[in-house]
């Protein structure tokens, strides 16, 4: 069985936001709501500065707190490693929003259900890359199957020092970050 994951190479993220716009069009996300965001974090003092670009989305956690909290089973872990929401079961109680340490969810106010990144399974099932990955101008977002040792994601994780966000939250995220900082002068 496949184990989908995303590897995000921050050193290649150019902060272009193409991922955000593509995601919204692909998944018909209502205005002013987002499934993915881009952080732009600068530390230091002029002229010794370091800016980190980091795109964030649902981490499709193995121990997903959103799933634990969901009273209806609408939020569930799928055996392909993704976390999905069954809109027909969702009552919009927002427990999952409270439970997600990554603030990865929102309420679709047009229909009332909770929503978030799906890893674009509807595309992946057709053999396509997720929309944000397909259009990632910096090739910063890489999607693939960790159960396949030759997949690019497996390779990247094997070859690079990597981390997950908020490890301490203990949700076993499946979005991994690698970052090779330039040696600033």
């Amino acid at each position: 069985m496949s184990k989908y994951a995303m590897v995000i190479d921050q050193s290649r993220c150019i902060g272009c936001m193409a991922c955000i716009v593509a995601c919204k069009a692909e998944n018909d996300v209502p205005p002013e709501m987002f499934r993915t965001r881009v952080m732009d974090i600068t530390k230091g003092k002029f002229p010794k500065l370091r800016t980190e670009y980091r795109s964030e989305l649902c981490n499709h956690c193995d121990d997903a707190q959103c799933v634990t909290a969901c009273p209806t089973g609408a939020s569930h872990n799928r055996d392909d490693g993704t976390v999905q929401i069954d809109r027909k079961k969702c009552v919009g109680c927002k427990a999952c929003l409270a439970a997600c340490p990554y603030d990865a969810r929102y309420i679709n106010h047009e229909h009332g259900y909770a929503d978030k990144c799906t890893f674009c399974t509807h595309r992946v099932e057709k053999g396509l890359e997720p929309a944000c990955v397909a259009t990632c101008v910096g090739r910063s977002r890489i999607f693939g199957d960790l159960s396949d040792k030759n997949s690019e994601v497996s390779r990247l994780l094997a070859e690079n020092e990597h981390r997950v966000l908020l490890k301490e939250a203990g949700t076993k995220p499946q979005v991994y970050y690698i970052n090779r900082y330039p040696n600033h002068k």
Binding site: S11, I14, G15, T42, F46, P47, L49, R50, T51, Y53, P182, N183, H184, K185
Partner: peptide, 14 residues
Amino acid sequence: RFSTAASKASMWLP
């Protein structure tokens, strides 16, 4: 200015 490109640079000359 510390542009996006500058943040990727091995040498930024302000």
